[in-house]
Amino acid sequence: MKKILTLLLSAGLVATATQALSSPKEDLEKFQTYYEQRFPGIQLDDFGNGPYALDASKRLQWESMEEFPPYEDYIDKGREIWETPFRNGKSFASCFGKDPSKVRVKYPHWDKASSQVVTLEGDINKCLKDNGEKPFGWKKGKIAHLGAFLGYEARGQKINVVIPDDPKALEAYEEGKHFYYAKRGQLNLACADCHIQYPGHRVRGQLLSTGLGQTTHFPVFRAKWSKAAANGDGMGTLHRRYGGCNKQVRARPFKAQSRQYRNLEFFHTYMSNGLAINAPGYRE
């Protein structure tokens, strides 16, 4: 009797645990519906404009800035990087295909062979190494310039991350999801605390963006980064931003392209499926 009871109990526990995991598709629907209901009238794509979708005066300032966007030079630098041949005569086209507008939309994706999430930055540096070139730094500079060019070329295409029905891919997705919702650092803040619970609210003078649409505009030109850089280059990758966020909540940041950040990118970008790519973006 006791045995049966234990068996029943543990079966019950297992059932509960399984039920607690919603499928990525269910998560996506809930995530997007939440924002649509919270901010009625905002078009899905507009969520990709972050705080500028939520506040009329900030939007005006941003729109006037977009007339001569500070990221433009870096798109050109990126184009040059794309077109410049490696020492072996090949170029990035040998890794990514000839059409630069078809690259960005493929990332991030699950790579079955290596059982991991592959990012655009990861493949950029893989391409360099495979061709005997020195890889770029992970967070800023050339990698962000090339990303800006590839993002610009892909503008308007819909984010379409696929989470395959593969236990390892689902595990990576779950880890990314957990990262987004888990409190961390001395300030005990989760990404979700600010960007799900309080988007549209202000921390000091800054307006918090929605979690929906956060990845569509990366790499980004940030005025804050530009001010801090001797050459004014404000471009940075998504993982540079992740690291900055983690530092701000006084948590130890993970390395750019670490498993943790790649899995976060996997979940985070998937949540914006259906939104238009609008990279590179500008943010304060």
Partner: peptide, 18 residues
């Protein structure tokens, strides 16, 4: 603040020795 509401966004200024 998380003692009363575990989801509170407010940093635990004492507990985390901020």
């Amino acid at each position: 603040a998380t003692a009363i509401n575990p989801h509170s966004i407010m940093p635990p200024l004492g507990r985390h020795r901020i």
